[in-house]
Amino acid sequence: MTAVAEKQVDNGVNVAALLGAREALTAAPEAAKFNWRASCSWVNGTHSRTSVKGFFGLGQEQSHRSEFTFDVDHPEIFASEDHGATPVELVLTGLAGCLTAGVAAIAQLRNIQLKSVKATLEGSMDIQGILGVDSDVRNGFDGIKVKFDIDADASREEIEALVAQSQKRSAVFDIVTNPTNVTVAVN
């Protein structure tokens, strides 16, 4: 054994389990089909509350350990009561959480010890779109900037490779960079 192989790296990610899952799901791709769910109730004004608990995966119903709820609202300058984050901030939250989880998992896989990881996100938007002022302006972000500050036992190039690979494997990065069919129905 070399000194390198004995290096104990622990980012709190169970890589063996992830690799095992990848192997198992390659053999049984049906089990890889997941359904993620959220349910949302209007509270008042622009305030709503969304909860997540159950989801489907590995061929059966699954559940979070407990129900998580998210209050969604808009700030007072939008004439709202500001009971929670805006929906677009939650999109940034999702992207940040996804990329950061990816950085940790890939670092573990590549035997890189992380000391700290901080992501700062910025989504720019021209609200003429959502207000219907100018139909040439899109509703959504016109761009998202993510900045990572990472302290780890690795070279700058290795850290850049971690961040690049994390984007490549990220669900939310894919969701925000590629079109998705959205079907909305009324019961």
Binding site: E160, A164, Q167, F173, T177, N178
Partner: peptide, 16 residues
């Protein structure tokens, strides 16, 4: 035609 917003990362991956 709709293009992915991942071009910058694809280029970064290839450079690395």
């Amino acid at each position: 035609a709709q293009f992915s917003g991942s071009l910058r990362n694809q280029a970064a991956l290839a450079d690395l």
